[in-house]
């Protein structure tokens, strides 16, 4: 059996890649994909721990987390369509009407 520390390292790496993408990308859809990567890193962690602990609860949470991520994408893309209609692009740095 692969020891859980391998999975934890892999998921930490995926999480870091996702975070890097969120911080550097300007396209809202790419940022959303990077957030999904971070969520899936967490899911991978949970599944690995659940298998290691022989506990089914973790796997159930992952199923819910996947469904929630899908709902999040639906809401997010809806908002991005509104942004696209107003600004003609989904660059997150462009809407800056509110500054103080």
């Amino acid at each position: 059996m692969v020891p859980p520390s391998y999975y934890v390292l892999l998921s930490a790496l995926i999480f870091a890649i996702g975070l890097y993408g969120v911080l550097t990308r300007r396209n809202a859809v790419v940022i959303l994909m990077c957030v999904e990567l971070m969520l899936n890193a967490a899911n991978l962690n949970i599944v690995a721990f659940a298998a290691y602990l022989g506990d089914v609860t973790g796997q159930i949470l992952v199923l819910f987390a996947l469904a929630i991520a899908a709902a999040e994408v639906a809401v997010g893309l809806g908002i991005f369509i509104l942004v696209y209609r107003e600004y003609g692009t989904v660059d997150v740095t462009l809407p800056r009407g509110m500054r103080w």
Binding site: F15, V35, L39, A41, A42, E72
Partner: peptide, 10 residues
């Protein structure tokens, strides 16, 4: 949410 779920996993 991603931070929260990752924290939960840990």
């Amino acid at each position: 949410s991603a931070f929260l779920l990752y924290g939960i996993s840990l």
